[in-house]
């Protein structure tokens, strides 16, 4: 699939994952590279962009006795943006599906 095309959708996927729970970078990278065919490294630039846009923030947590991990969580702006982007995507997907299935004519 086209790389640029994926990139926009990946942001939405990252926001969706973070809307359910705070996660560390590797966790997001692993989940997305397993389900969508992207290189393992591609998620980190997206996380960084989301952070510089103020949609996510990071914090360090040392739970479960392991080494400290950098967690990502949605900011309020991020949650708003997620709701908006999610709605856009669902509308778009529904429109594409109805055209593909020939429901319009």
């Amino acid at each position: 699939m086209n790389v640029q095309y994926k990139k926009g959708v990946l942001e939405l996927c990252v926001l969706a994952m973070l809307s359910r729970a705070d996660r560390y970078g590797y966790e997001i990278s692993e989940t997305l590279s397993e389900t969508i065919d992207i290189s393992d490294g591609a998620v980190y630039p997206i996380l960084r962009k989301l952070k510089s846009d103020g949609l996510v923030r990071t914090y360090i947590s040392e739970d479960s006795g392991g080494p400290p991990r950098k967690y990502y969580s949605l900011t309020r702006t991020g949650a708003e943006e997620y709701e908006r982007a999610r709605g856009d995507w669902l509308d778009f997907a529904a429109a594409v599906e109805s055209i593909i299935k020939g429901e319009n004519r």
Partner: peptide, 25 residues
């Protein structure tokens, strides 16, 4: 640091450095 972490996690899962680097792109 983020990519160092990535290597650490993957190594712990039993991948070789070469495999990890190749998958990173």
């Amino acid at each position: 640091a983020e990519y160092e972490n990535h290597f650490a996690f993957r190594l712990a899962d039993g991948y070789t450095e070469e495999e990890i680097a190749a998958r990173l792109g």
